[in-house]
């Protein structure tokens, strides 16, 4: 399943820099050190990690569609 394509959407306006997504899926999500907001590094990755990143976001700044 690794590398399966999902539609990942991030909303930097909602992001508060909690970095739960970086801990869950560091290959896919990053936080810009200057803006403190989420950045999408890639559009694919481990689906389990990506779902966990979306679920763990306290402000629901990440959405995922299969």
């Amino acid at each position: 399943m690794k590398g399966m394509t999902m539609k990942i959407t991030v909303d930097p306006a909602r992001c508060q820099g909690y970095a739960n997504c970086v801990a869950a899926a560091p290959d896919v999500f990053d936080i810009d050190d200057v803006t403190g907001k989420v950045v999408l590094l890639r559009t694919e990755g481990d689906p389990g990690e990506i779902r966990e990143a979306a679920r763990a976001c306290p402000v629901a700044a990440i959405s995922v569609e299969d």
Partner: peptide, 8 residues
């Protein structure tokens, strides 16, 4: 002020 490093 280093959220990425915290995540890693």
């Amino acid at each position: 002020d280093a959220p990425r490093l915290l995540g890693l």
